[in-house]
Write a protein that binds this DNA or RNA. Structure first.
Lengths: 162, 162
DNA sequence: ATTCTTGCAAAGCCTTTGCAACTGC
DNA sequence: GCAGTTGCAAAGGCTTTGCAAGAAT
């Protein structure tokens, strides 16, 4: 966790149950969904559908591909997860209990670095106001190479010279 | 064109030929590629592969799907086009002869509104410097409803009341 | 003449969906 | 017991690719 968590009163599971019950027609909280929520919120990771399925399998939880996708969709609708467009596959992260932020993505080690920028948020609000644009959301992703990978690469170059 | 064009000395076609020749092994400029470049740079539009194929067909130009995709890739590598992630399909826009900018995308009319924001660029540079992150590029897309569509919707609501 | 490009069709990749069996409420 | 959920396998949407025929230098 690189950013301070936001205090929340309900557990993710309770929040999800509440969401499902509130829908009309009411939806049901199943065993598979509960396992997924617990597994996802036991750690703070960015993950895609495949990585999640792999993790679930290693944890001994057997949930079908279809159910994983369907539940991810509901978790996003419930405000528990946030969906990030990262190339051809979707990436997910905690939304509930975690502050809004932007991402730096390292193309070498695949790491996601989180940061907050009031300045950017303000600039975006200004732009929308100026254009009379009703924003529903936005995507910001900075792609490049992180500090560690840059360092590692330079070190390797120096070694290669020996 | 909502932003002022950047003056360029070469035509897109010449620039593309130069790029292809400079590769090793050298690549060839074909009739299909020339038609695509001319068609694309005859207008200033945001488009995806399908829209481009449709436009080409209506212009009487017969170019296969595979060639359209392959040529789009080369045009991006050549710096003539910029690729934008817009949901499941890729969107393209002029890069050569056009200033760098960001986008507002209207979910209702599918319009792309362009804007420039030195403030955002500065904020991004600050973040990267602070994190020692070597940025190679970034994606910023604001999703929502544009002024016209908002107005149209309100008008329609008023009419519905009659 | 050589080597790159084209077009076709097939495959790839990620995600969604129809349907019968199942299960939460 | 009714209505929503699961799992399977098949389909969907967009993009890429293998290969033989064709074209650019």
């Amino acid at each position: 966790m690189s950013l301070p968590a936001v205090p929340v009163s309900q557990s993710p599971e309770d929040k999800f149950r509440e969401f499902l019950t509130s829908r009309s027609p009411a939806q049901r909280l199943t065993e598979q969904q509960r396992e997924m929520v617990r597994f996802i919120f036991a750690q703070h990771h960015h993950f895609d559908a495949d990585q999640l399925m792999e993790g679930l399998k290693q944890a001994g939880l057997v949930i079908s591909r279809a159910t994983v996708y369907r539940t991810l969709t509901k978790l996003v609708e419930a405000g528990l997860l946030r969906k990030i467009e990262l190339g051809p596959r979707m990436c997910y992260e905690h939304d509930y209990g975690y502050p809004h932020h932007e991402h730096l993505h390292c193309a070498r080690c695949n790491k996601m670095i989180e940061f907050q920028s009031p300045k950017i948020e303000e600039a975006l609000r200004d732009i929308c106001a100026q254009q009379a644009f009703k924003a529903s959301g936005y995507t910001l992703l900075i792609r490049g190479i992180c500090a560690e990978c840059t360092k590692a690469k330079v070190s390797r170059r120096l070694l290669d010279l020996v």
